[in-house]
Amino acid sequence: MTRIDDTFARLKSDGKKAFVAYVMAGDPDYDRSLEIVKGLPGAGVDIIEMGLPFTDPMADGPTIQMAGQRALAGGQTLERTLQMARDFREGDTTTPIVMMGYYNPIYSRGVDRFLADAKEAGIDGLIVVDLPPEEDDELCIPAQRAGLNFIRLATPTTDDKRLPKVLQNTSGFVYYVSITGITGAAEARADTVAPEVARIKAKTDLPVIVGFGVRSPESSAAIAGIADGVVVGSAIVGEIAKGRSASEVLAVVKSLADGAHSV
């Protein structure tokens, strides 16, 4: 059982939905990013998605691309992202952290070394968007052997033939991408997402969490109402980009979390 598994078991027992917040590690700089990350649980965040900045983020829209550029310009690296997890763990040993990013930095570090370091730093799960199921031996299976969840994305184009392959070695939860395209591109609609969530849940016992295109407390509530939880990224990262203080960013996060927890 990972912290992710424990969190979903607790939420289910309490009759609650999960609120997952994405932030780019190191945006706008290390200290302010860490301050925000440390404040997320108090703002109602059940699971933290910590973005690993990368130079070619093909799944991300402009908001998160720019966050990655700011972080890289500030000297954020894979090592500093692991250190951010360590620093967070000094004050919080229960909130799950999922590292989300691309395979190149992990490959460059070496899979075995990365997994050992991630586990030691307090990372609980991985979302690596450019590794398909056909490459599970590369990272997914070693990660699970190391005690980390490997979370897979399902999308509107994941048909019934493809879905079993996507679910095959997934653990922790399934991340359903509510729109076709990049992050922040469109608003998620509960009426179109609901049948897709039901289709996935018919094939797995894992929680199904919906992300991409959730921007307001109202849409957070609507999406959480038809899934096991909701992920918000671009709306939070956009507040950081405006130069908001940590307390201002966390107030926005709380409003989004309250939306998800209201159903």
Rank of each mutant, 00 (worst) to 15 (best):
L115S: 05
D124P: 04
D159F: 10
V177W: 00
L153H: 09
G61Y: 01
A257Y: 07
I141E: 13
L52T: 02
D31A: 15
S171D: 07
L115T: 04
R80P: 04
A198H: 08
V249A: 04
R109V: 03
M66A: 15
V37G: 00
A246D: 10
M66G: 11
M84K: 08
Y30Q: 10
D124H: 05
G61V: 11
V37W: 02
Y176M: 13
S33P: 00
I182C: 02
S216L: 02
S255N: 13
T81W: 01
R189T: 04
V37M: 14
E196W: 01
D124N: 14
T77G: 12
P217I: 05
L256R: 02
F54Q: 02
I4Q: 00
P28V: 09
S171R: 14
T77R: 02
I236E: 05
I179T: 12
M100V: 13
S245A: 12
E35R: 13
D159E: 07
V177L: 11
S234E: 06
I226V: 15
T77A: 07
P62N: 10
L148V: 06
D31L: 03
I64H: 06
P53T: 00
G181S: 12
V129R: 03
E120T: 14
V193L: 03
M100A: 11
E239H: 05
Y30N: 04
G233N: 08
I123F: 09
S108T: 15
Q168C: 12
I240H: 00
K12C: 00
D56C: 08
T63E: 01
S108H: 13
V232L: 07
R113I: 06
A202P: 06
V210L: 11
D258F: 10
F19R: 05
L72S: 07
R109Q: 13
D130E: 09
V231Q: 01
A146M: 09
L139Y: 06
P142Q: 11
M24Q: 12
V253Q: 00
S220Q: 01
V214A: 04
K119R: 15
Y102W: 12
D27A: 03
S178Q: 06
T183I: 05
A146V: 06
N169T: 09
V249M: 02
F150T: 05
G225Q: 06
M1L: 12
F19N: 06
K16I: 03
R89I: 06
K203C: 09
P41D: 08
D29E: 13
R189D: 14
I179N: 09
T94E: 15
D136R: 10
M50G: 08
L167T: 08
T192E: 15
P96C: 02
Y175K: 01
S13C: 05
H261I: 07
G238L: 11
D137M: 09
L78Q: 01
I182Y: 11
G26A: 09
I48W: 00
V263D: 04
F88T: 05
D130N: 13
A185K: 12
